[in-house]
Design a binder for these strands. Structure first.
Lengths: 344, 344
DNA sequence: TTGAAAGCGCTAACAT
DNA sequence: ATGTTAGCGCTTTCAA
């Protein structure tokens, strides 16, 4: 193994000079810097991560706590992880992958064993058991998500309330008067992750403001569950012409069910999705959607964390403004209400 | 920070004794062990990872190189990553997440900086540029996938040839004579990942052995691409009654297209999938499928890597036997060939 | 069964 | 602008 001492000897300088060339923490004459750099290249030197961590107190590693709930299949999570990893690399950091299942213990491990310089926590619950530890921790953390109490924490998330409202406003502007929401699976609401409720609140507020009729149904992302929910919706509210879906897995089943029931999108029913843009854009009918900006969330989380590592203070929660992209899935409310026999 | 020295002092023993209690590398009297353990708990001691890595030459970290190709369909990858992480933890290791995009450089980094004790490499190409480095590396590696030359490498993968054959045999046994394959996107074949070709080879061999007619179409996992492919298939081979789909993303679009064309599954067309069981089981028609055993692959990869770290030799490639689960999507070939006017 | 002590490779004062 | 040196916290000979 090539050590810093080897490089120093090869370049005819002291170890500290080599170290300072690497860190840039003090000025070095161009001549020696180049000589040292040459030795580094010639010997193929790489600093030993463990030695660095021990001596310098920095690991150049960011921990990422990711929910690995089996069965929950989540392109969003994956995309965030991707963005975190590439952004971290761009800032000279590596990423240590932790499962959310380990809970608070993972936080203790990272802290106690100095495994990482800071952590990014995904899938934060409103009253997450990891929060107290994170608040006390030596190392900074950035949450992707919005807990109930954000005191002393850095958080990034989509403004789901505004996103929900945006969906409703789009449908309202197209003349739809009767809407239904296909929400996340019941388990998500039960778990208290917050974003589902925030979305719903935004949707309800906007619907109320526009005087719209609204029905909300949590659904599992299976064809059967979606079919049942859709059928009931049209039974209970025959005049429904606008649907909002907040459930990646339900998007395609929903379109299949509508097709099967002979409801044309967007002629009979307009559909607006709240999901990653990719999912909406590549659906069997490209859907108008408010994007969940997974990549941005991951990137911003890392940028904030890196800023904290540079000594900046926590900036509190940051909610990203929603962006709606109009696609083929939404259009004007039908004027001759084909399905609206039961209306009123 | 609580150090090993603190624990030693608190317990009234030497540092080495504490170290040996932790590692179990020499026998300690029960009395002192308990005293030390008590001190460890009382002080909340955690060994410093960097110091350990430096002194012991072991990081207790496994590197996982994961393809983060945006747009590449990911649940399988995600599931493997999950299994890797949980299995690694069960063996006392953490996981460092690397992007495949970094290529060979990532291997050099892990090696040169001693970031991990070994690595697991996913998404291996037939002639992967990382292979030469991995062969020479000090630290062991396990590949998930099967490169062209496996000399000196540990690999785990599904036996895709057998899996493909299994799909065909199932359809043959149900009396289907004319089959079509919806394969991975063209890009996957182009990239030379191997498994797609191996599957196809297995399918072709089995079809030949049973004297079956066969058509193969790579497809992108979008509704449009699938619709076009399916339409062409039935135009070119009107008597087709069996479909094999090896493309997670195409499963739901395929079923939608068939529904839309009025072809009942399995009455008119039987569909067999080669994808994670979850996807097949939760499709709008539960599909008969050969499962891609993502969890097993991840788990076995870690187990092999850990074995290597204990000093065991590479065992070469291990191909998991395919398992087919029969579900609603496949049934006997239609006897009154509704669509078979063009047959022969 | 336990202790003492020499590093592991690097960083960051403290010198010059 | 560069060198000297004292650790960082742990593992592991070597000794007892």
């Amino acid at each position: 193994m090539v050590t810093l001492a080897d490089v120093a000897r090869h370049a005819g300088v002291s170890a500290s000079t080599v170290s300072y060339v690497l860190s840039g923490k003090r000025s070095i004459s161009t001549a020696t810097r180049e000589r040292i750099q040459h030795s580094i290249d010639a010997l193929g030197y790489r600093p030993h991560a463990g030695a660095r961590a021990l001596a310098g107190g920095r690991t150049s590693i960011l921990a990422l706590m990711m929910p690995l709930r089996t069965g929950l299949y989540l392109p969003v999570m994956m995309e965030i992880a991707m963005a975190v990893t590439t952004t971290a690399r761009a800032h000279g950091h590596d990423v240590l992958l932790l499962t959310g299942e380990e809970g608070p213990e993972a936080v203790r491990r990272v802290e106690g064993s100095a495994l990482a310089d800071g952590m990014i926590v995904m899938d934060v619950e409103l009253d997450d058991p990891r929060l107290p530890l994170l608040r006390e921790a030596e190392r900074p953390a950035v949450l992707v998500g919005l807990p109930a109490d954000t005191t002393g924490l850095d958080c990034v998330d989509l403004d789901f309330a505004a996103a929900g409202a945006r969906c409703v406003e789009h449908l309202a502007s197209l003349g739809h008067r009767r809407l239904a929401v296909l929400g996340e699976p019941p388990a998500v609401y039960a778990r208290g992750t917050g974003y589902a409720e925030r979305t719903l609140a935004g949707i309800r507020a906007a619907a109320a403001a526009h005087g719209l009729d609204l029905l909300h149904r949590p659904v599992d992302g299976t064809y059967g569950a979606v079919a049942a929910a859709v059928t009931r919706i049209f039974e209970e509210r025959p005049g429904t012409t606008g649907l909002v879906v907040q459930n990646e897995a339900a998007v395609e089943p929903l379109l299949a069910v509508l097709r099967h029931q002979g409801r044309a999108v967007p002629e009979d029913v307009s559909v607006v999705a709240l999901c990653p843009d990719q999912v909406a854009a590549h659906a069997s009918v490209p859907l108008t959607a408010v994007a969940v900006p997974a990549r941005d969330l991951g990137r911003i989380a890392v940028e904030r964390l890196v800023a904290r590592l540079r000594g900046e203070d926590a900036r509190g929660p940051e909610l990203l403004a929603p962006h709606l992209t109009v696609r083929a899935g939404s259009g004007p409310a039908p004027t001759a209400p084909g399905d609206a026999r039961g209306r009123d």
